[in-house]
Design a protein around this nucleic acid. Structure first.
Lengths: 190, 190
DNA sequence: GTCTATATACTGATAGAC
DNA sequence: GTCTATCAGTATATAGAC
């Protein structure tokens, strides 16, 4: 098993799926861009569908790990929230194609619902616990937890979308602070 | 020109594109579901791509009209915001396939960037003016307008997604009120 | 305007040599 | 493990009768 070739296939697939979409991308073009033969692609991945699923799960896992590791060592909840928020944003800005890939496929029927839910709960479970803890402590608003969680996810997606579309804003302190202020005041207890 | 046949094609395309995705849906299957021949589809739409573009623009226009008409007759900004927010949500819940279609294709490369931006500015322009007015009046937070607008859009998408995934929550006053409270406190000046 | 029939090209996946 | 060559199926779009 050649790890380099497999990784090259994953990298090429990430780029092409994001730019053109899943069905619009042929396995032949993925192989060509990866610098391997079509037969090689089907040696590493049983089908085109499995290639997409592996890609999606690995990308989401990477973001989840990044956010989780930013959590350690927080004294109050607002600081914890800010650490996680900024870690997530920083990851997205450092990995724009991965973020764009995720944004596109988290809603797409190209991925089975099973795979999408799996990836989602992996990340949101960890954040849901944190929100609940904040409500218990009286720091966060008493909105229904499931609704609040989905809303937070939506704000994160919208914010990364904004900074990826307007990279110059990412350099401005005003914008970096404002995006967290808006997020925080949406969940804080007033 | 037969309006019924053309509309039948648009209706079938909406359903199939949403369920299967654009590239995964053949023009032959759209025609078959619409009860027309493949030749008829290409008589009304120059290409598969133009069919998707027309569909997207008409759906976005419908939502925009719905929100705009909810604006008339507001005494204060918070009430206006609530009227628009609830009108948008109500439209999405009454037209779930249109909302799901939009969620999927507003990020998809199947649609040209040009078409996506066109549809977005059509709706967001009107809302951007309203946010600006609220900032001038000192009612809304002084976050950068472009960032705030994108965030609002993200919250709306996340909320509709939540209620479409959990329709029973849409019947509960607690949830309907909470979703607007969270939205409002995210933009209000505290 | 709508149909049937078809042209042309490309697709995912496999077989078998090396 | 990786390659070349290829199969069988399906795609978009067109042509021409009605």
């Amino acid at each position: 098993m050649n790890k380099d070739k497999k990784q090259a296939i994953l990298d090429a697939a990430l780029m092409l799926f994001t730019r053109q979409g899943y069905h619009a991308t042929s396995t032949a073009s993925v192989a060509k861009n990866a610098g391997v033969a079509t037969g090689t692609l089907f040696h590493h991945f049983a089908s085109k569908e499995e290639l997409l699923a592996q890609l999606f799960l690995s990308v989401k896992q990477e973001l989840a790990d990044e956010m989780r590791s930013a959590l350690k060592g927080a004294d109050n909840l607002e600081q914890s929230a800010q650490d996680i928020w900024q870690a997530g944003l920083a990851w997205a800005m450092s990995n724009p194609n991965k973020q764009l890939f995720f944004q596109q496929f988290c809603m797409s029927p190209a991925l089975s619902l099973e795979i999408r839910k799996m990836a989602m709960e992996e990340v949101l479970g960890f954040l849901g616990a944190l929100l609940h803890q904040g409500q218990e402590a009286g720091v966060l608003a008493q909105f229904p937890l499931d609704l609040m969680l989905e809303n937070c996810h939506g704000q994160f997606l919208a914010t990364t979308q904004f900074f990826l579309d307007n990279p110059e804003r990412w350099q401005q302190q005003e914008y970096r602070q404002a995006c967290f202020r808006q997020f925080w005041q949406s969940i804080a207890r007033l």
